[in-house]
Amino acid sequence: MKIFAFGSSIVSSYWNGAATYYRGCYKYLAQRGHEITFAEPDAYGRQQHRDAGDYTYVKSLVYRPTVDIEEMLERASEADVVVKHSGIGVDDVLLERLVAEMSEERPTFFWDVDSPATIARLRADVQDPFREAVPRYDAVLSYGGGPASRDGYLEFGARAYYNIYNGLDPDTHHPVPPDDSLRCDVAFLGNRLPDREARVEELFLRAAMLAPERDFLLGGEGWGDKPLPKNLRWIGHVPTGDHNRVNCSAGMVMNINRSSMASTGFSPPTRVFEVAGAGACMLCDDWPGIDDCFEPGKEILVIRGAEDVVDALRRYDDAARQRIGEAFHARALKDHTYAQRAAQAEAAFLKSMEKREIVTSEVVGRA
Rank of each mutant, 00 (worst) to 15 (best):
D114R: 11
R150M: 12
F38T: 02
E74W: 15
A139C: 10
R206C: 02
E295I: 13
K355N: 12
N247P: 02
A306Y: 00
R258A: 12
A139K: 00
P147C: 08
G325L: 13
Y165N: 08
V186W: 03
A52I: 05
G190V: 06
P116W: 10
G17M: 05
E299F: 08
V200Y: 01
Y28K: 02
K355C: 08
K84E: 14
D335Y: 12
L217P: 00
E213I: 01
D80M: 02
Y21R: 09
P175V: 09
M252F: 14
V310S: 11
E307S: 04
G289C: 06
P135R: 14
R192L: 00
K355T: 14
E96Q: 13
A330G: 04
N16R: 09
M254V: 00
A208W: 10
L203H: 00
A347M: 06
G7R: 07
L232V: 08
G7S: 12
I119A: 07
D179M: 11
Y161M: 04
P175A: 07
S259P: 03
I358N: 02
Y153F: 14
M102F: 10
E197S: 05
R196T: 03
V310H: 12
D215T: 10
A348V: 07
L313Q: 03
L232D: 13
F204C: 04
L95Q: 09
F294N: 00
H85N: 14
W234C: 04
V90G: 03
M102H: 12
G219A: 15
V140M: 13
V140F: 14
Y44C: 07
M209Y: 04
N257I: 03
L94C: 15
G224E: 15
S260D: 15
F109D: 04
V238Q: 07
L95N: 05
Y57Q: 07
I10Q: 07
P107N: 13
A312R: 10
V238S: 03
E299K: 04
A343C: 10
D185F: 02
Q31Y: 06
A332R: 09
L205H: 00
P177V: 11
E326G: 09
P65C: 09
N163Y: 07
G222T: 03
E354K: 01
E35P: 00
M72A: 09
R97P: 03
K59R: 14
K27A: 12
H34W: 10
D179S: 13
S9D: 13
D225F: 03
H49R: 11
M209Q: 15
M353G: 01
G7T: 05
I290D: 06
D242P: 00
A79L: 11
L61Y: 00
V176F: 13
D311T: 08
D292F: 10
E40F: 01
V83Q: 04
N231S: 06
S86F: 09
V302C: 06
E357R: 10
V364W: 07
E213Y: 04
A139Q: 06
D311E: 13
I235M: 14
V134H: 11
Y338Q: 00
G145C: 12
R196M: 02
R341T: 02
V134C: 08
G277E: 08
